[in-house]
């Protein structure tokens, strides 16, 4: 008698626990399904944004190659870490796009080292870049810019950044633009473009072969090419960012799908177990009579 009462007791308690688990599983299932919905729609949005960015990248790339040509042909022999050096990191405000921001950050850290010298200044374009750089290079952070990446970058955005850099009062001798160079939908390279100040350009070895150069022309030329190169870097990085977000969201949706499958299986099993247990109880209860 005593053993039977105790037996009746145990299923009763497990049944309660089983019910709770069933509810917990269904809640979890619902949450994961919602997350999958979000990541799926984020993927769709970035796919649309990506195709636009890629379309716009084509002319911007020819433009950038044209702007780069002069700096590539210029033979500048300047000691990078002796003179004032400026690092411009181009990224964006938004996350959830894989290692787009951190790869730029890593490239910068590899270039300047853990304890950067005081003659290296960093400009962060984009909130995510600012957050990363503020931690390690607080003393070298010259300025930060945000509101980048909500809509596709335009030439006037680049002109604003170039203007800020020129009017901030920091006299750099050489500069480097860090950005993600778009290669294909699944890959991008973190690359740099060198830039020089008017002073450095006029001291370059092969500048003398260029005709009719005066201070004014050179200054205007350098300012315009700064804006052009920033525009090019922004376009490249916007395209890489959207493609990276697309890939990241796709794998997130896939992972959520796997999770949903497993949870559904557990849910069904648990429900079956609960039903079976209830049947056993009823049958054994009837048999006991």
């Amino acid at each position: 008698m005593l053993s039977r009462t105790s037996l009746q007791f145990v299923p009763a308690s497990t049944q309660v626990r089983g019910m709770a688990t069933l509810k917990e599983i269904s809640m979890r299932l619902k949450a994961v399904t919602n997350i999958q919905k979000i990541t799926k729609s984020m993927k769709m949005i970035s796919a649309a944004k990506y195709s636009k960015a890629e379309r716009e990248l084509k002319p911007a790339r020819s433009y950038g190659v044209g702007a780069k040509a002069f700096y590539e042909k210029l033979e500048v022999d300047c000691e990078k870490h002796q003179a004032n050096h400026l690092v411009v990191a181009i990224s964006s405000d938004k996350g959830l796009c894989g290692a787009v921001h951190t790869s730029i950050f890593r490239a910068i850290r590899a270039m300047v080292g853990d304890k950067p010298a005081s003659n290296i200044k960093v400009v962060a374009v984009g909130d995510k870049m600012k957050a990363l750089l503020q931690k390690d290079f607080k003393n070298n952070l010259l300025m930060t810019m945000k509101d980048i990446g909500k809509s596709p970058p335009t030439f006037s955005d680049a002109a604003v950044v170039a203007n800020q850099i020129m009017s901030c009062g920091y006299e750099f001798d050489s500069a480097e633009l860090f950005f993600n160079h778009f290669r294909s939908i699944v890959s991008y390279n973190t690359t740099t473009i060198p830039l020089y100040s008017v002073g450095t350009i006029s001291e370059a070895d092969n500048i003398t072969q260029y005709d009719s150069i005066d201070e004014d022309v050179l200054r205007n030329y350098q300012e315009f090419s700064l804006a052009s190169l920033i525009y090019f870097a922004m376009k490249e990085s916007a395209c890489s960012e959207q493609s990276a977000r697309m890939t990241a969201m796709e794998s997130a949706s896939k992972n959520a799908g796997e999770m949903i499958e497993k949870l559904q299986m557990t849910y069904n099993r648990t429900r079956q177990a609960v039903i079976t247990r209830e049947l056993i109880e009823i049958i054994s209860g009837a048999a006991a009579l």
Binding site: Y63, G66, A67, A69, F70, K73, F155, N206, Q209, N220, Y221, F224, S225, S228
Partner: peptide, 18 residues
């Protein structure tokens, strides 16, 4: 409207306009 002209010694010409 505005922009830059570069003629390099390899005879390549780049005109970038705003």
């Amino acid at each position: 409207s505005s922009g830059s002209v570069t003629v390099n010694d390899d005879s390549s010409v780049q005109i970038l306009a705003e």
